[in-house]
Design a protein around this nucleic acid. Structure first.
Length: 852
RNA sequence: GCCGCCAUGGCGAAACCGGUAGACGCAACGGACUUAAAAUCCGUUUGGGGAAACUCAGUGUGGGUUCGAGUCCCACUGGCGGCACCA
């Protein structure tokens, strides 16, 4: 016997309903061609970003998005949709490997423990996932298809003419040699300066560097042979094909900025016998180029350097090479560089200009060389002032400009045949001129770099690749999945050499053939998991064609997942990578649409009670288990949604949980009360009678508001309306079972356990009124006629200020309202001695009398 | 520095397409029930003035459009997020 009686016995009925849903397979979703599938029903695929199962378990931030999608899933099912609502595990990753390294235990063991804990926690919250479709990126049957997709990339190239991926076999048929083919694969090997992190014993992708550096690790540049994915080939499509997607504009913009398209021209400069090509977005300023800068790594630096400058140049290049990226940017407060002594000829006017090297020019962007126009580029301006290089103005700024270095659009001056042209025309004109003379051409560049795809870790997918005579080749698909062998220990080797190279027997395939020892990054598994959910047990394909077409096919939209909910932290990388893979698979005919996610919604971060970001070190992490223990799963779900708009950042409040918990208790007490013995009994106030018009109105208003708010994902206001409705019903002396039933029906997606329990308790006592089980009950429709009120309150304003109110019949004529308003004491008072100029009447809302 | 988002009571927040600012919840205060407390129920709660009816002010700041602005426009300020020598 508990010391304090619970306001309602959630601890008893919540696990019972969860067990029922599991054994009855209430939320299992049939695929086309399997029993129970109904081709007549529309489909709805609602997806959560699957979690990395960390050792810490869930925190209350996880169930925010999950609750939102669960409400949608339960609602859509009841609206007659076939709903795909799955969950799985992004289970490769560093923490499990760190654990393995400390304990010597295979990372799979720790990973599985963590998954079991996550699954237990999620099931306690009553999410309606189809657990038969659970996927795990570390499962051999999943790894198999991740590797299979990698091989599709490996065996493909990007055809510039059609803008699509095509099989490598086509190049072979054209008679291209091996080197030419390898140079075009979507998955290729490159010697690249990589971000080597000694503490982790791995190389990081550019975009991961900051995260790990922030955690106190060091990152240095080292040249290494790496697998790369040619995502840059898709840069334009990754921008263009955002267009039809129902994503937040901010996220689209983030992606576009990340891809960083810029239009300009390439221009050839002669330096002695050599030609150096530069990229510029301002070819119209070509006459203002007073020097040229090459990146220190530029291959022509050696050739063009004058003998007397050689020593200084070499010293500078060496200094740059030893600097990390961080140093190069952080120490960039002051620009540095060295004159090579080389002289370039400006193709437009034959002027001789000095050639410098400076580390503010990056080898990895454009051509690694620029023409410097110090009058109209802030970086060049700063550099020129530093080294006393002439600054020549070639664009006249509009009147009123105060910038010392004007970078906007203006009128060309000091520019020969361009003089007098506005910037856009000058650009077009000079490009045409350059193209005509064969000295340059129009050019588009992207900031996006190819994706560094290999890691030197153990706990990731091994590449399905072997090396023979210094060349890579794919292993047969029949050998997939290729799994890493268990190791004696999981400590990194301390060199960029991958950990898997310690598995000498596994690496050696005999006959001089060795295995690739790099593994894939964690992104690999998360790039396609939404596809696997459609057909998780398929042993013959990563997804069956029919299942893919049904769940992801286009029907009036771009197709793909109907609703994808997750955090903004994945706004760029995960979403960009997944889109890239999806497009490749689409080009090759393996999926039916070009885009994977039709609608995207970002949930806002949940902060700790102190308004700070939740973290172990701050000690402000809230575990959903605690909330479920004390207030139940329904209260947790409801609070997650009641806090505020889904997209918004908002702090947790245990008091707030108590508030919604009290609301749920009120709903419970609509139907039940305790008798002398403290047992729950049906309330005598319940009656199988019809609803009075006022009751009917509030109930139908609630159905309407909740329905529309779920569609708009405005869950907080839906809950507020249900609270209003509950407060109204509480006041009734006789509570019609029908009214209670309708409230339970709309509350059901939010609080599924409580509503099912009350429904099951009340239903049998009043046969024929309530549905047998809410999960299977059709979503109720509201009766618009029940909403109309006979009388409406009209606000009366004088000169826009509220002066009085007027209750009029809904059908009242405008003239009648006007005369009644003008007759009001308050109105007379405020219009006394004035002339009425105008009367504005908004039907059913207000009347504004303008007088002076 | 550039780009994006946000700003409403003591707190989380509502407010359709420009039309009663503050719904709903938290906290606080008052009352009922109780020996008492908890729980529950009822009520008050933007600020100033007033005994009250009422009245003035009020959605980060300053301007504008409009009969009417939290909402639209311009210029600021503050906070959050992203990018950061990308030529």
């Amino acid at each position: 016997m508990s010391t304090q009686r619970k306001p309602f016995p959630f601890d008893e009925f919540e696990p019972r309903w969860q067990a029922h849903w599991e054994t009855a397979k209430t939320f299992a979703t049939p695929n086309p061609g399997t029993p129970g599938f109904d081709a007549a029903k529309p489909k709805y695929f609602v997806l959560d970003m699957f979690p990395y199962p960390s050792g810490a378990g869930l925190h209350v931030g996880h169930p925010e998005g999950y609750t939102a999608t669960d409400i949608i899933a339960r609602y859509r099912r009841r609206c007659g949709c076939q709903v795909l609502h799955p969950m799985g595990w992004d289970a490769f990753g560093l923490p499990a490997e760190e654990h393995a390294r400390k304990t010597g235990e295979h990372p799979r063991i720790n990973t599985e423990n963590n998954i079991n804990n996550f699954r237990r926690q999620l099931k306690r919250i009553g999410f309606s996932y189809d657990w038969d479709r659970e996927v795990n990126t570390t499962d051999p049957s999943y790894v198999k298809w991740t590797q299979w997709i990698f091989l599709r990339l490996y065996h493909s190239y990007f055809d510039e003419v059609t803008g699509k991926a095509r099989p490598i076999a086509e190049l072979e048929a054209q008679g291209l040699d091996r080197d030419a083919i390898d140079a075009r694969r979507l998955a290729y090997v490159a010697e690249a300066p990589v971000n080597w992190c000694p503490e982790l014993g791995t190389v990081l992708a550019n975009e991961e560097v900051e995260e790990w550096r922030a955690k106190g690790n060091t990152v240095e540049r080292r040249p290494l042979k790496q697998w790369m994915l040619r995502i840059t080939a898709y840069a334009q499509r990754l921008i263009d094909e955002l267009d039809g997607l129902d994503w937040p504009e901010g996220i689209k913009l983030l992606q576009k900025n990340w891809i960083g398209r810029s239009e300009g021209a390439e221009v050839d400069f002669r330096i002695g016998q050599e030609t150096v090509t530069v990229f510029t977005t301002r070819p119209d300023t070509l006459f203002g180029a007073t020097y040229m800068v090459l990146s220190p790594e530029h291959p022509l630096v050696e050739t063009i350097t004058a003998p007397e400058q050689k020593e200084a140049v070499d010293r500078y290049r060496k200094a740059c090479a030893s600097k990390s990226d961080l140093e190069r940017t952080e120490l960039a407060k002051e620009k540095t560089g060295v004159n090579t002594g080389g002289v370039a000829v400006n193709p437009v006017n034959g002027e001789k200009i000095p050639v410098w090297i400076a580390d503010y020019v990056l080898m990895s962007y454009g051509t690694g060389a620029i023409m410097a126009v110090p009058a109209h580029d802030e970086r060049d301006h700063e550099f020129a002032k530093q080294y006393g290089i002439p600054i020549l103005e070639v664009v006249r700024a509009p009147i009123g400009n105060t910038d010392t270095c004007f970078t906007g659009n203006g009128i060309a001056i000091n520019s020969g045949f361009l003089d007098g042209l506005p910037t856009p025309e000058a650009k077009a004109h000079i490009i045409a001129w350059l193209e005509d003379k064969g000295l340059g051409k129009k050019m588009v560049n992207f900031k996006l770099r190819d994706w560094l795809f290999s890691r030197q870790r153990y706990w990731g997918e091994p590449f399905p690749i072997v090396w023979r005579n210094g060349r890579h080749e794919a292993i047969p698909e029949s050998d997939l999945p290729l799994l890493a062998p268990a190791l004696e220990d999981y400590k990194p080797s301390g060199s960029p050499e991958p950990i898997l190279s310690k598995a000498t027997e596994w690496v050696d395939c005999g006959g001089g053939v060795t295995r690739e020892t790099n593994t894939m990054p964690q992104w690999a598994g998360s790039c396609w998991y939404y596809l696997r959910y459609c057909d998780p047990a398929n042993a013959d394909a990563f997804v069956g064609a029919e299942a893919e077409r049904y769940w992801l096919g286009a029907n009036g939209t771009n197709g793909g997942v109907d609703l994808y909910v997750g955090g903004t932290e994945h706004a760029v990388l995960h979403l960009l990578y997944a889109r890239f893979w999806h497009k490749v698979l689409h080009d090759l005919g393996h999926v039916s649409t070009a885009e994977p996610f039709q609608k995207l919604v970002n949930q806002g971060l949940i902060l700790g009670e102190d308004g700070q970001k939740m973290s172990k070190s701050r000690g402000n992490v809230v575990n959903p288990d605690t909330v479920v223990d004390e207030h139940g799963a329904d209260a947790l779900r409801l609070y997650e949604m009641f806090m505020g708009p889904l997209e918004q950042v908002k702090p947790w409040s245990m008091k707030g949980v108590e508030g919604v918990f009290r609301f749920l208790a009120r709903v419970w007490r609509l139907a039940l009360e305790t008798d002398q013995n403290g047992e729950w009994q049906l309330r005598p106030a319940l009656a199988p009678t019809g609803m009075e018009p006022t009751t009917r109105r509030i109930v139908h208003q609630t159905i309407k508001k909740v329905t529309q708010d779920i569609d708009a994902m405005s869950f907080n206001t839906a809950i507020a309306q249900m609270m209003v409705c509950t407060n109204e019903l509480t006041r009734l002396e006789v509570l019609p079972v029908e009214a209670l039933g309708l409230l339970l029906q709309v509350l059901n997606p939010f609080a599924p356990h409580l509503t099912e329990e009350i429904n099951a308790l009340v239903g049998p006592a009043y046969p024929g009124i309530l549905p047998a089980e809410l999960a299977h009950a059709p979503w109720p429709a509201w009766d618009e006629a029940a909403l109309v009120e006979d009388e409406v309150e009209i606000v009366v304003q004088v000169n826009g200020k509220l002066r009085d109110r007027l209750t009029v019949a809904r059908t009242a004529e405008n003239a009648e309202i006007e005369s009644r308003a003008l007759a009001l004491d308050k109105v007379r008072e405020h219009t006394e001695g004035q002339t009425i100029r105008k009367i504005i009447l908004v039907p059913g809302r207000l009347i504004n009398i303008v007088a002076n």
